[in-house]
Amino acid sequence: MKCGLIVMNKKFILANKQLSKVKKRIERADDILLFLDYDGTLAPFKADPLSAFVLPEVEASLKKLAENKKIHMSLISGRKLSELKKMIDLNRCHYAGSHGLEIEMSFADGIIIPHQNKEIDVLSKKNYQMTKEKYLKAVDVRLEDKNFGLALHFDSEKKQAEAEKDLKALFENTAYHLLSGREVIEIRPKGWDKGKAVNYISDQIREKSDINEVLKIYIGDDRTDEDAFKVLKDGITIYVQNEDDLNTEAEYYLRDPEDTAKLLKSLAGES
Rank of each mutant, 00 (worst) to 15 (best):
Lys46Pro: 07
Lys85Ile: 04
Lys159Met: 15
Asn117Val: 12
Val122Thr: 11
Glu164Ile: 11
Met105Asn: 10
Ile71Leu: 13
Gln160Phe: 10
Glu67His: 15
Leu101Cys: 04
Lys64Trp: 08
Leu81Phe: 02
Ile76Tyr: 08
Pro56His: 06
Met87Glu: 05
Asp48Pro: 12
Ala43Leu: 06
Pro44Leu: 13
Gly78His: 03
Leu81Trp: 02
Phe154Val: 01
His99Phe: 07
Ile113Thr: 13
Ser124Ile: 03
Ala161Pro: 04
Asn68Pro: 09
Ala161Lys: 08
Lys134Asn: 05
Met130Phe: 11
Leu55Phe: 10
Lys158Pro: 01
Lys69Ala: 11
Glu59Arg: 10
Glu67Leu: 10
Lys63Phe: 06
Ile103Asp: 00
Ser61Glu: 01
Leu101Asn: 09
Leu81Ser: 01
Glu172Leu: 15
Lys132His: 13
Glu162Tyr: 09
Gln129Leu: 02
Gly100Val: 00
Lys63Ser: 08
Ala163Met: 00
Thr131Gly: 07
Ala163Leu: 09
His177Pro: 02
Glu144Val: 05
Lys126Gly: 00
Asp89Ser: 07
Ile76Ala: 11
Val58Tyr: 06
Val58Gly: 05
Ala161Tyr: 07
Val54Met: 07
Tyr95Trp: 04
Lys146Val: 01
Lys85Pro: 03
Glu83Phe: 14
Ala60Leu: 06
His99Val: 02
Ser82His: 14
Asp121Gln: 13
Asn91Leu: 08
Gly110Tyr: 05
Pro49Lys: 01
Lys132Tyr: 13
Ala169Ser: 10
Gly100His: 00
Ile113Ser: 11
Asn68Leu: 12
Ser98Arg: 00
Lys86Ser: 15
Tyr38Met: 05
His72Asn: 12
His177Trp: 01
Thr174Val: 01
Tyr135Gly: 11
Asp89Gly: 12
Glu162Pro: 00
Arg142Met: 06
Tyr128Arg: 03
Asp155Met: 08
Arg92Ala: 07
Met105Ser: 06
Glu119Val: 15
Ala43Glu: 03
Leu65Arg: 03
Asp39Met: 02
Leu170Gln: 14
Ala161Met: 15
Gly149Cys: 03
Ile71Ala: 03
Asp37Pro: 03
Leu167Glu: 00
Val54Phe: 08
Val139Gly: 14
Lys85Glu: 04
Asn127Ala: 09
Lys126Tyr: 15
His94Trp: 05
Val122Lys: 12
Glu67Phe: 06
Met130Lys: 07
His72Glu: 14
Glu102Phe: 00
Pro44Ile: 05
Arg142Pro: 00
His99Lys: 04
Lys86Val: 08
His115Leu: 03
Leu81Met: 11
Arg92Gly: 12
Ile112Tyr: 08
Gly40Ile: 04
Met105Asp: 01
Asn127Cys: 02
Val139Asn: 15
Pro49Gln: 06
Asp48Phe: 07
Lys132Ser: 02
Asp155Trp: 09
Met73Ser: 15
His177Asn: 04
